[in-house]
Design a protein around this nucleic acid. Structure first.
Lengths: 157, 157
DNA sequence: CTTCAAGCTGAAGTCAACTTGAAGTCAAGG
DNA sequence: CCTTGACTTCAAGTTGACTTCAGCTTGAAG
């Protein structure tokens, strides 16, 4: 309908919910592509909106931009994912979400089991020591190690 | 057994699993306290280990250091939490974990419902638009908004 | 007494994912 | 033609939780 179906950055920003600065950043990082008009301004194809939806979904799932770029690069340029692509991807994502959920549940359940005990024992407490490591036998409170639990703050406005 | 039961920073680091630099940082941020010996070196009371366990637990649950400090400040200085303290705290934490778990489950279930559809519709897809906002009626793909899902990366070694 | 690991401070660096700012260009309406 | 708002680039700033560095001091062992 427009000049040639190409959208300037502000329009893409409004329609995608990303700030224009984020779109420029994504372009610089190679996650999205933009043509330029004669004056050097970005002109996005409409398919970028779908790509941005993918980016947001992936980032909601907790992937870093680098991982997202990798995943996008495995798709032929600009192609809409096929059913097979999409199954591979969602399988990956679902695994990740399940890991995160499981880690949180372990934490929460450890919390429940601790209610009222007030222990916070460094070597026994599931909350300060979720993965049940650090039970070295030398009497001293064992070191507590971190689980690679969560990803990304994602603080919007 | 030692001079007066006071631990230097390296020992606390080893026993707590935190790096010495992190301990100095926590002291600077007011999360833990250290006395000084005649030469100006930190000497920690053993109770700091329990406090550090608390800090690690809280940070595993996803609290920021600021929130942790607030929570610690609500306890009389250095006191081991009473049963009541601990119940209040774990209730708070459990709520937070449940929120996070629920958010992830919504995401995962949306993912399941999308398998094979390959849609990634900006206005319909639960993954790119988890909170089901952005259904403005004007034909254009609606903006996708972020849920305030997760906290803190927590990337150890 | 020597030695050197361990400690000290304060400033600066790191990481991710952007945002903000400055200074200038482009495009569309009147 | 002029104005205004959208756009450009590149550099620097932001946040949280630390780590690293430089340069110096302390303290325990031999």
């Amino acid at each position: 309908m427009d000049t040639h179906d190409l959208l300037p950055v502000g329009t893409v920003a409004k329609r995608s919910g990303f700030a224009a600065s984020a779109l420029r950043y994504y372009e610089a990082q190679g996650l999205i592509h933009a043509d330029r008009n004669s004056g050097g301004q970005r002109r996005f194809e409409r398919s970028v909106l779908r790509r941005l939806a993918f980016i947001r979904a992936a980032s909601n799932v907790g992937l870093t931009l680098e991982e997202i770029r990798d995943e996008l690069e495995r798709l032929p340029d600009g192609r809409t994912p096929t059913k097979a692509d999409w199954q591979r991807i969602t399988t990956h994502w679902r695994g990740r979400l399940n890991d995160q959920i499981a880690a949180l549940e372990r934490l929460r359940d450890g919390l429940d089991s601790c209610i009222g005990c007030g222990c916070l024992s460094l070597r026994r407490c599931t909350i300060s020591n979720p993965a049940d490591r650090a039970a070295d036998g030398n009497g001293a409170p064992g070191a507590a190690f971190l689980p690679p639990l969560l990803r990304r703050p994602h603080k919007p406005a």
